[in-house]
């Protein structure tokens, strides 16, 4: 085995792995290294990374919960909006119906009043027409009677006023 020539200008004689004179050195430094790494990991690095990961997990969970809550709120808000909308619609419909009823009532009253006025006027007109017609009829009978009496006189007869009047009335009744 090549123990005698190891330090000779970095040239390997045989396998350096089997040069047992360097084993204590390697083992010593390896143990030192492992202990240092173990302490660094177990005291500092691993707890820290574990805490960060746990933090992140809880943050994500919280955020998800908050998002869920916000979503619920949004849904509730939408529902409230829809409710309000529906309420407003029914209210509006009610108001419209009321207004319609009011207008209808006014309209009915106005119509009734107008009808009454119209019928009153019509009756009045009828009355005056009747009066005029009566007047006219009376005037016609008068004229007819006078004319008939004049005609009878002109023809040389002597006219009995009552007889002429009865004849004219007879003819006017037609």
């Amino acid at each position: 085995m090549a123990t005698e020539a190891t330090a000779e200008a970095g040239k390997a004689v045989g396998m350096p792995q089997l040069d047992f004179s360097t084993w204590p050195n390697q083992i010593f430094w390896l143990l030192v290294t492992l202990v240092v790494i173990y302490l660094v990991l177990s005291k500092v690095a691993l707890p820290r990374i574990g805490a960060v990961l746990a933090d992140r997990k809880s943050t994500i969970t919280n955020d998800l919960a908050a998002a869920e809550e916000l979503k619920q709120k949004a849904v509730a808000a939408e529902k409230a909006y829809n409710d309000a909308l529906a309420n407003a619609r029914t209210e509006a419909a009610k108001i419209i119906a009321a207004a319609k009823a009011e207008i209808q009532k006014d309209l009915d009253a106005a119509t009734a009043k107008a009808d009454a006025e119209i019928s009153a006027k019509a009756a009045e007109s009828e009355k005056s027409i009747a009066a005029i017609r009566d007047g006219a009829a009376a005037a016609v009978a008068e004229v007819a009677r006078d004319t008939a009496a004049e005609l009878v006189a002109a023809l040389g007869g002597s006219a009995d006023a009552a007889a002429v009047g009865a004849a004219v009335t007879e003819r006017l009744k037609g």
């Binding site: 190891t6 970095g10 040239k11 350096p16 360097t22 050195n25």
Partner: peptide, 13 residues
């Protein structure tokens, strides 16, 4: 793969 001292040429203790 040779193990050698960092400083000097002494034996590897």
């Amino acid at each position: 793969f040779v193990v050698k001292p960092l400083f000097g040429d002494g034996p590897v203790e």
